[in-house]
Design a protein around this nucleic acid. Sequence first.
DNA 1: CACAGTCAAGAGCGGTGCTCTCGAATTTGT
DNA 2: ACAAATTCGAGAGCACCGCTCTTGACTGTG
Lengths: 230, 230
Amino acid sequence: MPAHLTARERARAELTAAIKDEARRQLGLRGADGLSLRAVARELGMVSSALYRYFPSRDDLLTALIIDAYNAVGAAVETAAERGSTPGERWRIACAALRTWAREHPHEYALIYGSPVPGYRAPQDTVTPASRVPTAFLGIVHDAWQAGTIEQAGPAPELTPRLREQLDTIANHLAPGVPQEVLARGVIAWTQVYGMLSFELTGQFVGTFEPADDFFANAVEQLASFVGLS
Amino acid sequence: MPAHLTARERARAELTAAIKDEARRQLGLRGADGLSLRAVARELGMVSSALYRYFPSRDDLLTALIIDAYNAVGAAVETAAERGSTPGERWRIACAALRTWAREHPHEYALIYGSPVPGYRAPQDTVTPASRVPTAFLGIVHDAWQAGTIEQAGPAPELTPRLREQLDTIANHLAPGVPQEVLARGVIAWTQVYGMLSFELTGQFVGTFEPADDFFANAVEQLASFVGLS
DNA sequence: CACAGTCAAGAGCGGTGCTCTCGAATTTGT
DNA sequence: ACAAATTCGAGAGCACCGCTCTTGACTGTG
């Protein structure tokens, strides 16, 4: 808390944080729709209308939580992707970190990667935090390509012109110099990891891959080969 | 409508169907949380409490919609998987059918594959309809294996004993005789398709793969090779 | 024809997001 | 130092939600 703030500003910052903390706690208990402004206010010992001094609407509070969640999972994957000496290792560690975070914060994971809350539309403030995880994953691919260690096996189908364009847009922002074929497999691998996690968290694996640890590790390993990480 | 039913039974069946239809309509407009019993009743010209004669609670109505959705997407994928002469063709057509259905019924897709509705817990009645899609996909793999056309490329990591057990459980139910290595890749491919669809439907591809047609087709093609379908 | 079962309707409970007003507290400008 | 401007918490209230219970009318059957 910077000292140059007035008492009112300090109080406001603290209360804003307290509201987000309590909201996050309720989110972990009852999920996104279970998040009630009145309940948050009640728990904080204030009246519901007072909350609107800090968040103009329920959606704005949700947006704040979404941005925080994006940043949290982004930071987790980023620091994980820095560990490991080879690209393959970095990939495995980053995937494991993503899964760990997702399992520890299932409701926040659902909040950012699950079906969007009904009327909710993500504002522009979320796109930068949202890109941290894919950026970290593609960064591994990018570094591996720069190091010249990428070797892709198996046939790669022809890329359509439009797909080449789309891949170029991504490459220019996140992985300059990486060939489109390599980038395509990188994105495929990342969506695959996401699919597995969502299946596990939404309970679609109940009765089969439970626990899903081994299946996840196996898939991550095969995806590393698929992308050409070693 | 069978004729041996009494007038009361016929009216009940019709009203039940009308309620589900209107609920499905609202689901398509405002999503799962936007589904309001009062609004359904209002639209049907009755009073909200009357709805409880047909569905004991909002969750029961949702469950009915979920089962219908599982059966709808299951039927779509099943009939698609029957077309095509080669396993590779059947795979591609089935994936395309799944994507088409998902894009045409995004809210129903979110209902069954998205983050589970907060307090909602899927009852046992849903598991059989829910298994139709994975069963259809693994059926393609099974048939291809029986026909002896499966050729897998690339290294396959060692399967742990626990993962072998889990794969055996699945094989015994859905794809008897298929080796665990092949089955593992089949499940990986199916979760990948799901991950791509969820990314597309939740808008995570906005600004990059838009439209996602080409990326989807490319991934499906590469996954066919990955599984060994030809 | 009467009785048992089924039905729609209404009132009501506790909950929600959100708006508005009012008086008190605090910050700011002179 | 004091008055003006701003910010804040509290309360009442609106419209909506899921759900329960009771009441009176209707239907099918013995």
